[in-house]
């Protein structure tokens, strides 16, 4: 009967979606703001009209109307600003970290979270050079990473690349409208 007791203990179930951390946030922060020795969080609490404007632009509203930008500084100089954006897909959420250089162009994109199901698709898209396609984009530009890698990857990685495009588009819109 002991296995039954063990099952009962472990059976204290609550459902959770199995997220996989592809890159820890501190590591992503270091990569997106290389050389920064201090970090700051800028929390932008959106008013209803501003939240609506963002939703109209990219069909997305941040959770609780809160956008959090992070700024990496070296001394008094800003090295980079970045934010983490979640994209909900039918296969679970992915989290996209988008960093901007001081000129306001995308410095880099990191995928920090995926799910057990989407992880291999994300990794294949990354191996095909997906994030290179975002470098240099500025607010107002349209991310086209999926179309860049479509010929090099399978159908599902190409699909997930389209979802990552959405995350980058959201970051571009949020940064363009609310960071400065």
């Amino acid at each position: 009967m002991s296995w039954l007791i063990r099952a009962a203990v472990a059976g204290a179930l609550l459902h959770i979606t199995p997220t996989v951390i592809l890159e820890k946030r501190p590591e992503a922060a270091t990569r997106l703001a290389p050389g920064a020795d201090a970090f700051f969080a800028r929390e932008v609490h959106l008013s209803d009209p501003d939240a609506h404007k963002l939703h109209e632009a990219v069909d997305w509203s941040p959770e609780d109307g809160l956008l959090t930008f992070y700024t990496g500084k070296r001394g008094a100089n800003v090295v980079s600003a970045f934010l983490f954006v979640r994209v909900d897909t039918p296969h679970g959420p992915i989290e996209v970290a988008v960093g901007f250089d001081p000129a306001g162009a995308v410095r880099g994109v990191e995928i920090t979270k995926a799910t057990v199901e989407t992880k291999p698709w994300v990794l294949e898209a990354l191996r095909a050079g997906l994030t290179d396609a975002y470098r240099g984009l500025k607010p107002g530009h349209t991310p086209e990473g999926a179309s860049r890698v479509r010929d090099k990857v399978g159908q599902l990685p190409a699909y997930i690349a389209g979802e990552i495009d959405k995350g980058v588009a959201r970051a571009l819109a949020a940064y363009g409208a609310f960071y400065r």
């Binding site: 820890k24 946030r25 501190p26 922060a29 201090a38 970090f39 700051f40 969080a41 800028r42 929390e43 932008v44 609490h45 959106l46 008013s47 209803d48 501003d50 939240a51 109307g65 992070y70 609310f178």
Partner: peptide, 17 residues
């Protein structure tokens, strides 16, 4: 939600990330 968009800034440590 605030009546107008509100910005609050504070330092972040790596452990907070």
């Amino acid at each position: 939600p605030p009546e107008s968009t509100l910005v609050v800034e504070h330092p972040m440590t790596m452990s907070a990330f």
